[in-house]
Design a protein around this nucleic acid. Structure first.
Lengths: 139, 139
DNA sequence: CTTGAAGCTACAATTGCTATAGGGATTAGG
DNA sequence: CCTAATCCCTATAGCAATTGTAGCTTCAAG
């Protein structure tokens, strides 16, 4: 198994779309693979490994520039992984901020919904809350 | 206070950028305001009210098309607010999904970080985790 | 009347893809 | 060997919701 594969195969194997694989190549995240006589991309296991790395990092929410930097850092061994650690912590902090914002949002939303009595729009608490400090009734 | 204001003024008042105000107008969310002799936009309190509504709804995470629909629904009174309620519940469910995804992400990230000993990249647990099922040491 | 801030339009860039058009390559079957 | 189905190719445009740019005009204060 594995070995040489077409773009459709590594895409399927890694849960990526074909266009996205080409997009990563264009962005310089995935090295340009050799081509068949007819000009089609032929991928090796190294490419698959790299692509999996990218996908996992994307699932962790890292941006493509961050991923590029991690790949770059990891390519020369012997360097300290402190920059990688810093990026991961930064990402964690970002995730924490997003969670906090969403939780505040969630409670505001559910409060709004609870107060809505389902009558008509002129008395809708949701619309009223969104309008805040102003009266929706004047046009 | 309030009354007639320039685009910069309502932008400042509502925590919006000037470009964004013009963008909402182009998208049809904000009605076209009258212009000064020189062609500059002159806003009334009605515009401010509308713009605040849009900003609050955006803070709640509603999309611009959703907001357009809510404005549309609320403009004719006497209609039931059930569609608004449905949109809000849908948005709440979406927020819940996002929170769940971010919490899973958070624990994966912090697990990764905890295992990292800060040595060099060749032994970095973060890079290893992202690479998963493959060995980063071969180039 | 001059100056500097603010406004105008139109268009490009952002992020990470996805979709489309208009072709060529590959492969399995007959 | 021929054909049909499926894949692949490049190039380009689109998405959401802004933000940024360039080059010009208008406004308000002194």
């Amino acid at each position: 198994m594995t070995g040489i594969s077409s773009i459709g195969e590594i895409a399927r194997d890694t849960g990526t779309s074909v266009q996205t694989v080409r997009y990563y190549e264009a962005r310089g995240l995935l090295p340009k693979p050799p081509r068949s006589d007819g000009g089609q991309r032929r991928y090796t296991d190294d490419h698959r490994t790299r692509l999996l790395f990218i996908r996992h990092a994307r699932e962790m929410g890292f941006s493509l520039p961050d991923i590029a930097e991690m790949i770059d850092l990891s390519s020369v061994s012997g360097k300290p992984c402190e920059p990688v650690d810093r990026m991961a912590r930064c990402q964690l902090a970002e995730v924490d901020r997003k969670i906090a914002r969403l939780q505040a949002l969630r409670s505001a939303l559910s409060g709004m919904i609870e107060r809505c009595d389902g009558e008509d729009v002129s008395s809708c608490r949701i619309l009223e809350t969104l309008g805040a400090s102003s009266h929706p009734e004047d046009k």
